[in-house]
Design a protein around this nucleic acid. Structure first.
Lengths: 141, 141
DNA sequence: CCTACATCCTCTAGCGACTAGAGGAGCAAG
DNA sequence: CTTGCTCCTCTAGTCGCTAGAGGATGTAGG
């Protein structure tokens, strides 16, 4: 079951869009599956697991190139997992720095929106703060 | 002072790269400045302030289209600031949801890296967790 | 005046990771 | 046999730049 299914079903089963599956094949992230006589792609359970793996990794923000490496590691499980560790660790620190940056953006945006007098633009903090950047990018607040 | 300067100086003064300034002109985010006899662009203080405004807004993650609207509001300050407010509010909620997502990614990545036995790939949690997505996308952990 | 060298100009193509759409073929059900 | 869905390939567009080619202009020193 879930063997020799067409692309639409593989898409439904994996959560990866049809066009994206074809794109992954095109860039060589997945290999080209066999075809029916009518030239339609046929996927089996392993293919769908790969797609799920890819989707999960993409959801976690891994780049295609990193996923390429991770898939390769999955295929050759007798290697050291140092590479996989390094990739995940790099991703973690990326996520952490993004969080830090977004938190400071959040503070600044909230500050911008501290304008209870919803009047005209010339009294509005949003435009004002954007115009007076000097006072904002410094970590003095 | 800072009037009739060439693009390189406008770039240095605003922190927006030369190529990016030309790109902004091309897409109509800023208007085409006058030129010298030798066909070089000349920027004045107002232009540089616009570039700073844009840069600050970009740093805060506003999209070009949003910035277009914000610049327009800045030029017509007799309008209601509701639009500016809405844009900033939308940006804030975007930032907040990104933070939330990244925080849960962080947790999942940390869980992936809880593998102290740095052995071979077949014992490695990184690959394993990516392969067994079912247990991860559910909010049960 | 000549020569370096920096800066400027336009134009085109590339990035990442898809997404959308045109135009056509295959296939299952009624 | 026709309707309507899925599938095929191919191309171009998205966003916000960035890089590079190939050439013109401007400035400082010898």
């Amino acid at each position: 079951m879930l063997s020799d299914v067409p692309i639409g079903e593989a898409s439904r089963a994996s959560g990866v869009k049809v066009a994206t599956i074809r794109y992954y094949e095109q860039i060589g992230l997945i290999s080209a599956p066999p075809r029916t006589e009518g030239n339609r792609r046929l996927y089996d359970r392993r293919d769908i697991e790969r797609l799920l793996f890819i989707r999960h990794a993409r959801d976690l923000g891994f780049e295609i190139d990193a996923i390429r490496t991770l898939l390769d590691l999955q295929d050759n499980p007798d290697q050291s997992c140092a590479t996989a560790d390094a990739i995940a660790r790099a991703r973690l620190s990326d996520v952490e720095s993004r969080i830090a940056k977004l938190l400071s953006l959040k503070v600044e945006l909230q500050r911008m929106l501290e304008c209870t007098a919803h009047g005209r633009v010339d009294q509005c903090r949003v435009i004002e703060v954007l115009g007076h950047h000097e006072e904002c990018m410094h970590p003095t607040h």
